[in-house]
Computed example of a mutant assay.
Amino acid sequence: MFLVPANAEPETPCNTLTVSGNPEYPPLLWRDEQHPGSLVGAVPALLREITEPLGVNVEVRDIGSWARVQHLARQGEIDMVAGAFITSERIGYMDYLLPPITHLPTAVWVPKGREFVYRHWPDLAGKRGSTLINNSFGQNFDRYAEQNLRIEGVRSIEQSFQMARVGRVDYVLYEVLQGEVKLEYMGIADEFVPLQTPVSREGLFFTFAKASPCNSFELRERIAERLYELVDSGRVDELVRQFKAIYTGAG
């Protein structure tokens, strides 16, 4: 730790961080219709509560699909990703901040009346699934799915649910929380059910792009310290409830 004169210029102008994330992730993250080009939700709100006392601003931008967000993080064209599961590939180009924001179970969502027995991953063999392109549900499941399952990646989760409604796929893979609010927003919450056994339960993390010029050990530690305080206080659960009401009310 060292002190610099009050009038000294910082070595890197990182008073503002460019952040993005999965735009299909309500109530944690979604496109802000009131401010096109921005993302809103519980996770951006949490990040601002972390960074504002540190004198750091964040611009949480809508830069396209989740696959594009990951590509730009790899290139260092954004500084942070607001919510990602851990995979060995992502560890190669992102630094994960502890603790996780929250833990999210992922469900097999099926149209009512077309439920099937699901106890473990092999029960999905021979069936057709759908989810977002480049979505991860934990590295172990991802590896199993790539080798054994038929899961079509699409650009929006609404498309996945509509495909299931008309019988083009048998199930949709999506987190329980996000599935509940997305289906309610679409007005078809009574048409789908999550099968009881989750396929995974993964921690969701803030990450810094390794190639970002703003990625420093000191800044990561300062953010992580504030993150721990807010997670420990139950603030994440409060924000999730708040933004769930905002998102579903907007529908």
Rank of each mutant, 00 (worst) to 15 (best):
A84R: 12
A82Y: 01
P44V: 10
L104S: 10
R48T: 13
A84D: 02
V58G: 11
S88L: 08
E52N: 13
M94F: 03
R74I: 04
G83D: 03
P53K: 12
M94D: 05
P99H: 10
P44N: 12
T106F: 11
A84L: 14
G83H: 06
T102P: 00
E59R: 15
S88R: 14
P100K: 01
Q75P: 01
V69L: 07
T102C: 04
H103C: 05
G55P: 09
Q70T: 10
E59M: 11
S38D: 13
M94E: 14
V43E: 12
R74H: 14
P105M: 03
R90S: 05
G41N: 06
P53R: 11
L47A: 10
D79I: 03
H71L: 12
R90Y: 03
A45D: 14
H71N: 13
N57H: 14
E89R: 11
I91T: 12
L97D: 06
S38C: 10
G92R: 04
H71D: 15
T106R: 00
E89M: 07
W66H: 14
G64F: 09
H103P: 00
L39E: 08
T106P: 00
A107N: 02
I101T: 05
T87E: 05
I63R: 11
G76R: 08
S38G: 07
P100A: 13
I78W: 05
H103M: 13
S65N: 04
L46Q: 06
L46P: 02
E49Q: 14
T51D: 03
V69A: 13
